[in-house]
């Protein structure tokens, strides 16, 4: 474990806590894409298949359970919770995310490290996570002004993978082992997708203005 990876995991955890706070405190999920939440639940379920077979550390197991549990809880909340589901922007959250799932799975069948079920699903989860934010970014552009907690949620979610990239660089130089280039490339694509969001987020913070993404 190194400081970059710890910062990445904690930033990821913070993004989930901010999202839970927004939904719980405002009893509303307006501005949140259910499709992105479903994609993330799929990412964690596909990536942590080894949850019960390979024990790495208590920290690793606990964080996996937290990520799987919180993503499923948010999807359940947005679909089933009597009050929360009423504020879901169904008419704006129209990204056809099934194509992202299909595309990532096909890519994983072609590009992976070993042709085993676990490796295929691991690669699938890495590719899918790289594009999972797209429905959320499209929803933000369509929904005009973005409330603070939603903006912070997306910001931390984008920042966590940037820390992971620093972690891979650190490990490359200290452990003399190359990282998994599947993670490298997907992580760079994932972070790049946030680039314009980070720009508008920084500008809104600098000008102390409401976060507005151009349509």
């Amino acid at each position: 474990m190194n400081i970059f990876r710890l910062a990445g995991d904690l930033t990821h955890l913070i993004s989930i806590l901010v999202l839970l706070l927004k939904i719980y405190a405002t009893k509303s999920c307006s501005g949140i894409s259910l499709k992105t939440q479903e994609l993330y639940a799929l990412v964690f379920l596909a990536r942590y298949l080894d949850l019960f077979t390979d024990f790495v550390s208590v920290y690793n197991t606990v964080m996996k359970l937290v990520f799987i549990g919180s993503s499923l809880a948010i999807v359940w909340c947005m679909r089933m919770h009597r009050i929360v589901k009423r504020s879901y922007n169904r008419e704006l959250d129209t990204f056809r995310h099934y194509f992202l799932v299909a595309g990532s799975f096909v890519l994983a069948l072609v590009v992976h490290e070993k042709f085993t079920l676990q490796e295929i699903f691991w690669a699938f989860s890495i590719y899918l996570e790289a594009v999972a934010i797209l429905p959320q970014l499209v929803l933000l552009q369509r929904s005009g002004n973005v409330d603070n907690l939603t903006g912070q949620y997306v910001f931390f979610l984008g920042a966590y993978r940037a820390f992971y990239i620093l972690n891979w660089i650190y490990r490359y130089f200290t452990e003399q082992r190359f990282g998994r280039w599947i993670s490298w490339i997907s992580g760079l694509v994932q972070t790049a997708l946030y680039a314009d969001f980070f720009y508008y987020y920084f500008m809104s913070w600098k000008n102390n203005a409401k976060l507005q993404l151009p349509a």
Binding site: R5, D9, H12, D50, D54, V56, S57, N60, M63, K64, F67, E113, W122, Y164, N167, R171, E175, Q176, R177, F178, G179, R180, S183
Partner: peptide, 10 residues
Amino acid sequence: PKRAYPKDEL
């Protein structure tokens, strides 16, 4: 040969 490090990351 250099090996990819194990899946100890989240």
